[in-house]
């Protein structure tokens, strides 16, 4: 048990929690604007592949990051247009988008790298030290620019909602679209803008996964988009609380990795830990909350 209170564990929790954080911010943008977004999962996936393809073709991970963001935005725009212009049910659209992302990334994996499972390895934004000690891990996580990009994601989100015109409009259309429209705010345009932000954040989350694992592998988002969405809900659609929920989920997953090589607990059961924690969080242990009033109505 003492291993839970080490720097290594802290570093690991943070490292695992970061992509959740970025994706959760994406979920907040979209859902605060009133667009239900189960498409985060697929968006992370295309973000990850975008990062890898961009990096391998250009040689620069920064170009890779850019590609991840673009890919995320494009996929979220498809979702946004299907829901806002096509009046598709947002969950149906999200499910279809996830399937599109899963099949599409595998297809592209074969096209680019002639592999059904994974891409060649790519460098990170900066080289990580190979030192595996807790403090070194923590230091390298903290020094990683992608960590700070995620932190920026959160900061910008919080700031945007309180201080920018666009943020104010997003809150308004998600809470009371009729009132916002009456005040001269375009509902669809604001929601599309919010969905673009969701694409940026979730694409960023995907890039983080790819850089962290130095490659793309088929289906590598592994349900993280849904867990991030659960964090959004458990956090009451508020950036700070959702970020906290993400870190809790990150810790659960870090604990899973920690226990995996312990013989006194069956590793299959340990594998369930993050998912069970998510279920419990959904049941309202973290606090039940009120969704944006117009969420899912369009």
């Amino acid at each position: 048990m003492s291993r839970l209170f080490t720097l290594a564990f802290l570093a690991q929790s943070l490292r695992i929690g970061l992509p959740y954080l970025a994706a959760a911010m994406g979920g907040i943008w979209s859902e605060r604007a009133g667009v239900v977004n189960v498409a985060l999962e697929g968006t992370m996936l295309v973000g990850a592949l975008g990062a890898v393809i961009g990096t391998t073709t250009s040689g620069s991970p920064w170009i890779g990051l850019l590609c991840a963001l673009v890919a995320g935005v494009v996929l979220q725009l498809v979702h946004g247009l299907a829901v806002l212009r096509g009046h598709a049910n947002a969950i149906v659209s999200g499910i279809a988008i996830n399937l599109l992302a899963a099949g599409g990334t595998r297809f592209l994996l074969r096209s680019f790298y002639d592999s059904a499972s994974n891409s060649p390895s790519i460098p990170s934004l900066v080289r990580r030290s190979s030192d595996a000690s807790g403090s070194a891990l923590l230091a390298s996580t903290l020094l990683d620019p992608s960590t700070w990009l995620v932190v920026t994601c959160i900061a910008v989100t919080v700031f945007a909602f309180s201080r920018t015109r666009f943020g104010l409009r997003v809150l308004a259309v998600g809470e009371s679209p009729a009132a916002a429209e009456n005040a001269g705010v375009s509902i669809d345009r604001t929601r599309l803008g919010a969905v673009v932000c969701a694409g940026l954040c979730a694409g960023m989350a995907g890039a983080w996964l790819a850089f962290d694992q130095h490659q793309f592998s088929s289906g590598m988002s592994g349900g993280r988009g849904f867990i991030a969405l659960a964090a959004v809900i458990a956090g009451g659609w508020r950036p700070g609380r959702a970020a906290f929920a993400c870190l809790v989920f990150g810790a659960a997953e870090a604990a899973q990795i920690l226990f995996q090589d312990q013989h006194w607990v069956p590793h299959h059961l340990v594998q369930m830990l993050p998912y069970v924690v998510t279920l419990i969080a959904l049941a309202g242990v973290i606090g039940r909350s009120r969704p944006p009033a117009a969420l899912g109505r369009n």
Binding site: V83, H87, S93, A96, G104, R106
Partner: peptide, 23 residues
């Protein structure tokens, strides 16, 4: 050709059918 093209097709079909009326 990678069989994954099938998933892409199915996904597009669902998207088109579900947003077809609005479109």
């Amino acid at each position: 050709i990678p069989m994954d093209v099938v998933d892409v097709i199915v996904a597009l079909l669902i998207l088109l059918v579900s947003s077809g009326e609005g479109l």
